[in-house]
Amino acid sequence: MTPPLAEEANRTTGASESFAAVSSCASYTILAKRADFLRAAQARRQGTGGFLLQARERGDGRPDIRVGFTCSKKIGNAVMRNRAKRRLREIVRAVLPGLARPGWDYVLVGRPAATISRDFAMLKADLTQALSQIHRPPRPKA
C-alpha cells in the first residue's frame, strides 16, 4: 500500500499546512572543530544542576547560532555518554531557538550522574535559566 499524499493527509486529518514552520524552527548548526570548543571554554560559563553551559559571542558578523555537546568519560561508558548527549540535544532543540542570540556559540557539557538522571523538565528549566544568566548584562565594577 502506498502512503497518501501530504495534501490528502491534511484534508482527511484536518492538519494545517503550518507543520513546515514548526519543523524548521531549529535554526542552529552543530560545532565540530576542537578550536571552537576551546574558544567557548574560555568565555562565559553558567553551571546548572544538570550540565554546564559555555557561551561566547563570536563577533564575526555571521548571524548563525552554533551549538556543541560534550560528555567526558566521567559520565560513564559509551552508552551513558550517548544517552547524556541525546538528552542535551533534545533540550536544545526544545528551548534554544526561542532564547539564543544570533552570532553566539553555545557548548553544553554533561555532568556525571546528573545529566542522565535529572528530570527532563528540570533540564529544560536549567537551560532556560542558564541562557538568561549568560545573556544578562554584566554588573558594573565598583
Rank of each mutant, 00 (worst) to 15 (best):
T2H: 07
P3C: 06
L5Q: 09
E7H: 01
E8K: 03
A9H: 05
A9C: 10
A9P: 00
A9M: 08
A9F: 12
N10A: 14
R11W: 00
T12P: 00
T12A: 14
T13L: 14
T13V: 03
A15W: 11
A15N: 04
E17K: 09
E17Y: 10
E17S: 14
S18T: 12
F19G: 15
A21L: 07
S23V: 15
S23Q: 13
S24F: 11
C25P: 00
A26Q: 11
S27R: 13
S27E: 12
S27A: 14
Y28I: 12
T29C: 07
I30T: 14
I30H: 07
L31P: 03
L31G: 12
A32I: 04
K33M: 03
R34M: 08
R34S: 13
A35S: 11
A35E: 13
D36C: 03
F37G: 09
L38E: 12
L38K: 04
R39F: 01
A41K: 06
Q42R: 15
G47C: 11
T48C: 07
T48I: 03
G50N: 02
G50V: 00
L52E: 03
L53G: 03
R56V: 04
E57D: 12
E57I: 03
R58A: 04
R58S: 03
D60C: 07
R62M: 12
R62A: 13
P63A: 05
P63H: 08
P63W: 00
D64P: 07
D64C: 06
R66V: 08
R66Q: 14
T70L: 10
C71T: 06
S72H: 05
S72T: 15
S72G: 15
K73T: 13
K73R: 15
I75C: 04
N77C: 06
N77M: 01
A78E: 10
V79Y: 01
V79T: 14
M80I: 13
M80D: 11
R81Y: 11
N82R: 12
R83H: 13
K85C: 11
K85D: 08
K85P: 07
R86S: 10
R89K: 14
V92H: 07
V92S: 14
R93D: 07
A94W: 00
A94K: 09
A94Y: 00
V95A: 01
V95K: 04
L96C: 08
L96K: 05
G98A: 15
G98P: 09
G98Y: 09
L99R: 15
A100L: 11
R101Q: 10
P102V: 09
G103P: 11
G103I: 03
Y106S: 09
Y106C: 06
V107Q: 09
L108H: 01
V109A: 06
G110L: 07
G110R: 01
R111C: 02
P112L: 10
F120T: 02
F120R: 08
F120N: 10
F120V: 01
A121C: 10
M122W: 01
L123V: 03
L123K: 05
L123Y: 00
D126H: 01
T128C: 11
Q129F: 08
L131A: 10
L131T: 04
S132I: 01
S132C: 02
I134F: 05
I134Y: 04
H135M: 05
H135W: 06
K141D: 11
K141F: 00
